[in-house]
Design a protein around this nucleic acid. Structure first.
Lengths: 335, 335
DNA sequence: ATGAAAGCGCTAACAA
DNA sequence: TTGTTAGCGCTTTCAT
């Protein structure tokens, strides 16, 4: 019943065992430190035997920066967000950072949770939820903590952005739906506005107008499957007023399609063309085969992480905005 | 062009501004410290004016414990996992902890990334991916870091577990599929074994056998939609040998159903009954209306977090295993 | 290339 | 109740 190693082993223990100083131990575990190969070996060996690992709390305290970053996300249980976060987390880890995950649905939550990240001296914050209030952004600036917004569109200074090209999305949606010579279209988007989702719908509307195509707007109670199913009843009623509808989100499209097909007996695309936006995995499932606009969430996350790392290395840099282009994916819900 | 607040403000600054000692500042920010209401007010005010927030690195260094925890997950972009992680993260935050998210697909990754968590003195580790190697578990024990495994089933000592009741799942699957007097059934599960997914299939097979019902097994190349679609061809060939098939995962079931319906022209449940397991959101979508076995991932995550918090408070406790029961959900893929 | 010593920002005895 | 003091474990000049 012995207590062999109750306490955490410190660099001091390793130093003694290896017969060197604590500075030597520190150097052995630091990439760019000058140290002879022989002592490094000695230290590493002793460390392994003792089960030593650097205490990052102490290191961070000393160096005044941590390799912790924050990821602030909402609706993580949504296919699109899940992929985004997974990729971002992987990328951060690959680059030697550790992401603290904060799920924040409301704007107040974003504020509260972001503020908590400051306690940890995070090296940066990635936001892919509601836009953080300017107080937070100001604080980030003051502490020179890089902050990058994904699909949020904020023109606040000093903030990096990665966004899909909403203008292009609107144009492509228009193109996809007018291949069959449409003269009147529809769009559905959530009534609560959000930069990217509302933006793509808006861009679509404008493209229609400037091309002389009528467009009727449906406001759904959210951007979930259920929200789509609910608004579908209104769409069904008005369905001979347009030949195609652009759903601002794939998930919304699934709800619309299902309701239209299964409870209103419509056939898609014969009776009505439907397209979505995002190209989540389910869009390619046989039951949907949804024609949609592809937004590469993987590339997006990687770009966001890259941007942050650049800013961490060079905090003086101006905030920049990366606009990612989207592409059309034709499947079976368009003619 | 002044540099008003370039440096991080410390408790020292606050102390001076408030005209008190640094200990007073410390006390003002610590829940259970004795301090007069008047000085606390003074301190808090000064702190707010200066934009001070406690440096958790320093605090953790001193107290020798952090409120950081680790979440090690695989396949975060899967609906079931996404929900699990979202809930766990929320729950941790609600309880005052900050989760570091590590996505680890392979067993080696789990080992490597878990080890990295030690650097941060994490208060605990939640694993919902491949089971971590025993070296990690040993290390956790040595450092008395609680570790809880979700749906992993490991009988290693000192490890807490939260698992669905796989025996019950097997029984329920059997019950659901034999309502229509079946005498022969099928099951599909991934060829790479995993505690919970393989386990439920195994339990199903045994229940069939002990009830004198024949059962044929299909091994899919994974547990994705695509894997389901692929194995469906074999199922179609043999389809008059059984009246119902238990897919060990909803996602697998979607792939199977779609392929059976759309490329083999089968009608479900008329030609063949199908059930899944998990009850992910898509199971209730109109295109599937999948009869399935519900596993409450929210309750599961909350239980896992609870378990960990208990262990953090009382590290001496023995590891315990919580078995969560599952329920049947009848929709339209059973007769 | 190596060691001694100072100190990062905080908390927790201990005294007052 | 408050302040003084001694570290927590590490990195980093500065000598050697």
């Amino acid at each position: 019943m012995d207590e062999p190693s109750r306490k955490r082993v410190t660099s001091f223990d390793v130093a003694r065992k290896a017969g060197v100083s604590r500075s030597a131990v520190s150097r052995a575990f630091s990439e760019k430190a000058v140290i002879s190969e022989t002592t490094r070996k000695k230290v590493l060996e002793a460390a392994k035997e003792l089960g030593y690992s650097v205490n990052f709390m102490a290191r961070s305290l000393q160096t005044r920066h941590s390799n912790l970053v924050g990821i602030v996300v909402s609706a993580l249980d949504t296919p699109f967000r899940a992929t985004q976060v997974k990729v971002a987390a992987q990328e951060f880890v690959r680059q030697g950072f550790r992401p603290i995950l904060m799920n924040a649905e409301t704007s107040e939550e974003v504020e509260k949770l972001s503020a908590q990240l400051f306690n940890y001296n995070v090296a940066g914050i990635l936001v892919t939820s509601a836009t953080p209030p300017s107080t937070i952004i100001g604080e980030c600036n003051r502490l020179s903590i890089p902050i990058v917004l994904v699909n949020r569109g904020s023109e606040v200074e000093g903030v990096d952005n990665v966004q899909m090209d909403i203008e292009q999305a609107g144009q492509i949606a228009f193109d996809m739906l007018t291949r069959s010579n449409a003269t009147s279209l529809a769009v559905v988007h959530p009534q609560t506005t959000s930069y990217s989702v509302t933006g793509r719908a808006q861009a679509f509307v404008e493209t229609c107008r400037s091309n002389g195509v009528a467009v009727t707007e449906f406001l759904s109670p959210g951007q979930t499957y259920t929200a789509g199913a609910e608004i579908a009843d209104q769409i069904a009623k008005a369905r001979d007023k347009f030949s195609g509808v652009f759903c601002s989100t794939d998930t919304l499209a699934f709800g619309v399609m299902d309701e239209l097909r299964h409870t209103h007996g419509l056939s898609i695309p014969a009776d009505l063309e439907i397209i979505g936006c995002d190209d989540v995995e389910q869009a390619s499932w046989a039951s949907y085969q949804l024609s949609t606009i592809r937004q590469d969430s993987t590339a997006q996350s990687i770009a966001a992480v890259d941007l942050m790392l650049k800013r961490i290395k060079n905090p003086a840099e101006q905030g920049q905005t990366i606009v990612q282009s989207v592409t059309s994916v034709y499947r079976n819900t368009t003619r």
